[in-house]
Every structure is written in C-alpha cells, then in structure tokens.
C-alpha cells in the first residue's frame, strides 16, 4: 500500500465499484454575539475597535468576550490605531476556495498594541520567488490596512494589509 498517488488523481478513479460518493453540505448560521457585531459595525465605518480587560488592561483586536488570562469578561471598547506589526507570515502556494490566486501571503498581524494577533492577507510586495519574499518581509515589518470601497461588516472589509511606506 505504499504507492504515492499524484494529488490530481480523484478517489473515485480507483476501485470505483467500492466507492459511494456522498456530500455533506449543511447550512449553519453562527450567532456572533454583541462583541463581534459591534466590531463589524466599526469595520463598515473603516474603524478598528478593540476590547479591553478590566483587570490586566490587555486590549484584544479582534475583540474577545473574555480575557482568558484573568478569566473575566472584557468591558471597555477602544478604537485602535490603524497600524500593525507582522508577527509571522507564510506564502500559500495551494489553491483554496474563496481565497486569492496562489501564491498569497497570510500573516499574523499585531494591530496597535493588541494582546492577540489578527490573521489577514499581506499584499503590495513584489517578489519573484520565496527567497525574495523572505528578503522583503519580516517579523516586525510595519503594515497598514487597505480598505475595500464596498464594505459590509466583515473582516474582509479590509482588503489586505501593506508594508508602511518609509
């Protein structure tokens, strides 16, 4: 059973008489709660909001209902600066439904002084290959958001983040 199949080979192309195709596609409607609703309302207005822990003062962007370190509910909203620092990033070379043409760059970005990072795309970097990308993008690279013209209260109201022009 050690054969390495090419990823393009479909499963029903092999031993087809033993296969029973079925589809598991269910609709869900997630309750997002007040925190996320309010954050997305801010996104529509090109504002980035964070929520603060009453005990340790940590700010969370995206908002968290609970500061798990202190195990208390966060209570104070703040609008944060539209400035981020790259914590890590990776270029994805595989195609994925609903996402940009590969390669695209996904990054963990610390927005303002948030305790947690936001996952988002980074664009606006020209690179030929992975080695060149690694030369141009680093942990600590400063980035700023590029907003979509049409916004609908969604994390992708920011199209992507780009390195800040120095």
């Amino acid at each position: 059973m050690a054969d390495e199949l090419d990823p393009s080979v479909q499963t029903d192309a092999i031993n087809a008489e033993y296969k029973y195709p079925f589809h598991w596609d269910l609709d869900f409607s997630l309750n997002i709660g007040e925190d996320n609703r309010k954050f997305f309302e801010g996104m529509e207005e090109k504002r980035i909001l964070g929520k603060k822990c009453p005990d340790c003062g940590a700010t969370f962007v995206p908002p968290q209902a609970v500061c798990v370190e202190c195990y208390v509910e966060t209570d104070e909203w703040v609008e944060v600066e539209q400035h981020g620092v790259v914590e890590s990033y990776t270029a994805c070379f595989f195609e994925f439904e609903g996402l940009p043409e590969p390669p695209y760059i996904t990054a963990a970005i610390r927005v303002a002084d948030s305790d947690i990072c936001m996952l988002h795309f980074i664009d606006g970097i020209e690179y030929e290959d992975h080695d060149e990308l690694v030369e141009k993008l680093h942990k600590g690279t400063e980035v700023e958001p590029v907003w979509a013209d049409e916004r609908e209260g969604h994390i992708r109201d920011i199209k992507h983040w780009e390195p800040v022009e120095k």
């Binding site: 997630l30 890590s88 994805c92 996904t106 942990k139 969604h154 994390i155």
Partner: peptide
C-alpha cells in the same frame, strides 16, 4: 474560527507555514 480565521483561509498547512517562517527567522 469562523469569523476571523476561516475568512483568511486558515487551515493546518497555513498554521504550519506561519510557524515555519517564525522558526526560520528567529
């Protein structure tokens, strides 16, 4: 996570990539 991570295509391989970049850089 549905709102902030799935929208950015987060999955197993992407999470390994984010760590690999950090590992190489640090």
């Amino acid at each position: 996570e549905a709102l902030y991570h799935r929208t950015m295509g987060q999955n197993n391989d992407q999470s390994f990539g984010l760590l690999a970049t950090a590992h190489q850089q640090e």
